[in-house]
Write a protein that binds this DNA or RNA. Sequence first.
DNA 1: GTCATAAGTGTATTTTATACAGTTTGCTGT
DNA 2: ACAGCAAACTGTATAAAATACACTTATGAC
Lengths: 234, 234
Amino acid sequence: MTPALKDLYVQKDKMYVATDCIIFGFDAGKLKLLVFKRRVEPFLGTWSLIGSFVRMEEDVSEAAKRVLTEITGLDNVFMEQLKAYGMADRDPGYRCVSIAQFALIRIDDYDKELTEEHGAHWFELNELPELVLDHGQMVEDAMARLKRKARYQPIGFELLPEKFTIPQLQSLYEAIYQKKLDDRNFRKKLMTLGLLIKLNEKDKTTSRRGAFLYKFDYDNYQKLVKSGYNFEIA
Amino acid sequence: MTPALKDLYVQKDKMYVATDCIIFGFDAGKLKLLVFKRRVEPFLGTWSLIGSFVRMEEDVSEAAKRVLTEITGLDNVFMEQLKAYGMADRDPGYRCVSIAQFALIRIDDYDKELTEEHGAHWFELNELPELVLDHGQMVEDAMARLKRKARYQPIGFELLPEKFTIPQLQSLYEAIYQKKLDDRNFRKKLMTLGLLIKLNEKDKTTSRRGAFLYKFDYDNYQKLVKSGYNFEIA
DNA sequence: GTCATAAGTGTATTTTATACAGTTTGCTGT
DNA sequence: ACAGCAAACTGTATAAAATACACTTATGAC
């Protein structure tokens, strides 16, 4: 069943469980969200998160991954449960509890044709259109979670390409925290964490001088987590 | 339907939504959890969190509050959604997504007869018995959330009586963080936050000298939150 | 070869966290 | 009545972390 068709099959007296995906991306210094234009009634033409009913035989988290793959062609994406939305009247059509999950994707990885087929558009977070049902609330909650989580877990890296520069990383954190950071202090802090591997390549797309590329040091991160290390990024 | 009977009515091919409550209390310097002995099959005699199906016409959060009131007689309790547990095979009897919610209650407020009728027992957190299904995981997750949340939101106060002493508060935080805190630094930190109202009464139950009682300053807390103040307790 | 632009570097100051020990209070027991 | 006890309470010095701040370097464009 495609997500857009789900409403055709519902029964009013049944309890449904769905999942909705809050998909973040980062592009050109801006945090963006992937939203979808509904092509069926009810709410035809309104903007919405992408979602699906959870099938009897699949985990809730599997359902979300399935949706994400259907839409973006991506696999192995960072995804985490946000929370369940369970107001009895949250959807006027039928009784449905939705488990919202947020995903962080590398914006140049996804399958653009596939998303366009599904009526998807990237919006900057401060230019979001009104979203259907409680999806606006979900996005707000996800944004709050992202802000908080970014402080103690290096999830920012999930939004960047594998190789990235320090100024890129900084501009991402500036987008998440919605404030300017001091470049000297940012760089200093990051270097002391020991989470970056400096490469012998430069990215010259944004300056003549070029900025060194780095990789995230997953191995060392795992080690540090195990030893109970406490992060704080920016 | 009482929670203990819910399994009698299930259909194998239906999707169910339930809620389970992780109920924390604080007594005699120890953090405790309220768990229940099942009196029906399946899992007769095993320890379990208390829960219920979510009814068609009620919000998920209402369902949790209903359960809590049925069990403890309490109303207006601090309660917050933990997360949804949605593994397809989490309950072998039927397909059920459970939305776990954790509650903090003042342990001398609740209705002891009522809880005993329901087969409830308080366990210290490090003396918990094995719990049924994924309830052990829920408790673990709730504990992690409580630890983290206590750092930036003054939720500890929900676990203490309205009037409390600084040493009581400290011992609560020591129980949450599972480590000793320096009494001088703890007191200093708290006083600078401006969240306490000193009363003209003393609690003499734990020392001859007596310790001054304090109230939590909800009004000032609200103000500080609005002005974007950032807490860190202990 | 000079101009423009982003990348990169170091230090001083303030703030916050931590470590640490002695005094006060008021009941108890003799 | 007074010595003993136990918990409540207080202050200061040190270390660590966060913040504020300005110039130099590299390189392509002209």
